[in-house]
Design a binder for these strands. Structure first.
Lengths: 164, 164
DNA sequence: GTCCTGGCTATGAACTCCCTAAGTCAGAGG
DNA sequence: CCTCTGACTTAGGGAGTTCATAGCCAGGAC
């Protein structure tokens, strides 16, 4: 549990010091993301969507959240474009609505999976009883840091820089 | 913004249906992780730790949160083992405390980086003005899904299974 | 000793999140 | 038409998170 070496990111020479950045929540993508999903219930609903839930009662039952919270959060997720309401009709039943992840919502999977990894590594003695594996080869799946050239990347090799 | 193909995970044949799982928040690593970091302020403090903040006033200034919230959240993060308080002494100053990420806290970097990626892709027109790149080769860094055998993995290729 | 500064701590109010319990509403079945 | 069910909505309240402001305290400077 030692803190060395530091796990902080580098800052490139052409990027101004962190102190002089403009109000950060407007500029940092992490803050922007947290503006959309910051509550426990939003994460849980997205988790259940990834685990296959589509109907309202599935979300409330599986995420263990109450009806009002589920309704409010699902509406927010739909408004934010992460999910969409799709009507469906089972034979002998009336038309109902399902909630499906959009591409925007599905793109949060790496983040959810990184949280899964962390919880697996640090909050269970010996690992959780469920795991994620590659359906093709059976090897466990992780959210790993990689650069676009395919190199594996460690925290100390990441550099924060100003674009354009 | 179409929802097909589904971005949900598969469930392996030897894993019982989602409905029959035990109370999920005890078993799902994502829920466990959210027990430790679920507030916006916790994420922001971790973000600033990755961006290099170590001192109390740096955290409050950069994460734009008030003193009481920063103090409470930092204490929680220390108690949870994600950060540690380290005394330091500048010449002519009295001893003060710095906050450093532990290995446990630093291990959340992939999750933070996945949130960074998402915010960059979906909340800015044309991308954010800051980016993350590999200090070695200059290519952008992402949190990508990979399996332990090194294959790139898409959402539909991930299988949820019961371990042991 | 007294002053001063950085690092918290205390207080109180506003707001958000979440819960339970009860009510509404559309529409298929009868 | 009436009933029933699933999908919410409404009402009320408790807990958690946040803020602004103010106060405390250790200890180096003097």
């Amino acid at each position: 549990m030692d803190a060395s070496p530091p796990a902080t990111l580098r800052v490139s020479a052409d990027t101004p010091a962190r102190e002089s950045w403009p109000p950060i929540d407007d500029q940092c993508p992490i803050g922007r993301t947290l503006d959309v999903v910051a509550t426990r219930s939003a994460f849980l609903l997205l988790r259940e969507a990834f685990y296959g839930a589509t109907r309202f009662d599935q979300f409330t039952d599986r995420a263990q959240i109450s009806d009002p919270v589920a309704a409010a959060r699902l509406r927010e997720l739909v408004n934010a474009g992460l999910m969409e309401k799709v009507p469906y009709r089972e034979p002998g039943q009336r038309t109902r609505a399902e909630y499906h992840l959009t591409a925007k919502g599905a793109d949060l999977l790496p983040a959810l999976l990184a949280l899964f990894d962390w919880g697996d590594r640090w909050t269970f003695a010996g690992g959780a009883r469920i795991g994620l594996r590659h359906a093709g080869c059976g090897a466990p799946v992780h959210a790993a840091l990689t650069c676009a050239d395919g190199h594996p990347v460690s925290a100390s090799e990441i550099e924060l820089h100003r674009r354009r």
